Deep mutational scan, measured.
Amino acid sequence: MGFKLLSKLLVYLTASIMAIASPLAFSVDSSGEYPTVSEIPVGEVRLYQIADGVWSHIATQSFDGAVYPSNGLIVRDGDELLLIDTAWGAKNTAALLAEIEKQIGLPVTRAVSTHFHDDRVGGVDVLRAAGVATYASPSTRRLAEVEGNEIPTHSLEGLSSSGDAVRFGPVELFYPGAAHSTDNLIVYVPSASVLYGGCAIYELSRTSAGNVADADLAEWPTSIERIQQHYPEAQFVIPGHGLPGGLDLLKHTTNVVKAHTNRSVVE
């Protein structure tokens, strides 16, 4: 069995187990497998329904001669939608809004960016022009300005110390501490036991640490421990890039980060 097929099978099995364990909360999309990078042309966006009122959005972007996937989250909030992270750029984010209108038909009224990198804030200006209120932590807003990236308009308070959590509509926002970046936030959907790890969490097929220019490698494993301790009931975990899975993604990420750190020390 090929690795790609095995990865998709694991996603399907995880979703099936969740649907059985929580039949009222989960209505997993039966329309197909989780979209992969090879299936999404740059400039297009796919939506994948995880649970009743919960979707991931998947886009792709060219970077350094390669094409990478990027995940975000959409959560229903009454007759409105909360968006977590842009679709990595203005063109993708405009396509995301169009796809949401086509498939869901509810307005996106608020959006949260989970850290300051372009795959999370690139497209904020498109959201703002569409009347979406954009939010991020003060740290993310400051770092985005320093980096020359787009800056969300509103500040999220109460997320300055490791372990801080605040309720934001249908989700809980959690600051686990520094990891992929010093400002990275985690998003949890309690009604569906869905954990969105953003770039602080890796997919299972990833074996290298990737972009760690703004990471705190020493603190990252401790931050992941905080996530595990705060959300032990999480059933569906979405990484910032690639295929979702279960809580095993947290341990896998820790292993990859520690291996990278150990290699760096040896070198």
Rank of each mutant, 00 (worst) to 15 (best):
M1L: 06
G2W: 09
L5G: 09
S7D: 07
L10A: 12
S16G: 14
I17Q: 07
I17C: 11
I20M: 12
P23A: 12
L24H: 14
S30M: 15
Y34H: 09
T36H: 10
T36A: 13
V37R: 09
V37D: 14
V42L: 09
G43Q: 05
E44N: 13
E44P: 06
R46Y: 09
I50F: 07
A51C: 05
D52W: 08
G53I: 08
V54K: 02
H57E: 01
I58L: 08
T60G: 12
D64Y: 15
A66N: 14
V67H: 15
V67W: 14
P69S: 15
N71E: 02
G72L: 02
G72W: 02
I74F: 04
E80H: 08
A87E: 00
K91T: 15
K91N: 15
T93K: 00
I100H: 00
E101Y: 11
Q103M: 13
Q103I: 12
V108F: 03
T109H: 10
R110P: 05
A111F: 07
S113W: 04
S113Y: 03
T114F: 01
T114H: 00
D118A: 09
D119N: 05
R120T: 02
V121R: 02
G123I: 02
D125H: 11
R128V: 11
V132M: 04
A133L: 14
T134H: 02
Y135H: 07
T140W: 02
V146Y: 13
G148D: 07
G148M: 08
L156F: 06
L156P: 06
S162I: 10
G163H: 06
A165D: 07
E172A: 03
F174I: 04
P176N: 01
P176R: 01
P176Y: 00
H180P: 01
H180T: 00
N184P: 01
N184V: 01
V187R: 02
A192W: 05
V194W: 00
L195N: 00
Y196G: 02
Y196E: 01
G198T: 06
Y202W: 07
Y202H: 08
Y202M: 15
Y202A: 07
E203R: 03
L204E: 13
L204A: 12
S205N: 10
T207F: 09
S208G: 11
G210L: 04
V212H: 10
A213N: 12
E219S: 12
P221I: 12
T222K: 12
T222P: 08
S223N: 01
S223A: 10
E225W: 11
R226P: 05
H230F: 12
F236K: 10
H241G: 01
G242Q: 02
P244V: 06
D248T: 10
L249I: 06
L250S: 02
L250V: 05
K251F: 09
H252K: 02
T253I: 06
T253F: 00
N255I: 11
V256K: 04
V257T: 06
A259T: 11
A259P: 09
S264L: 12
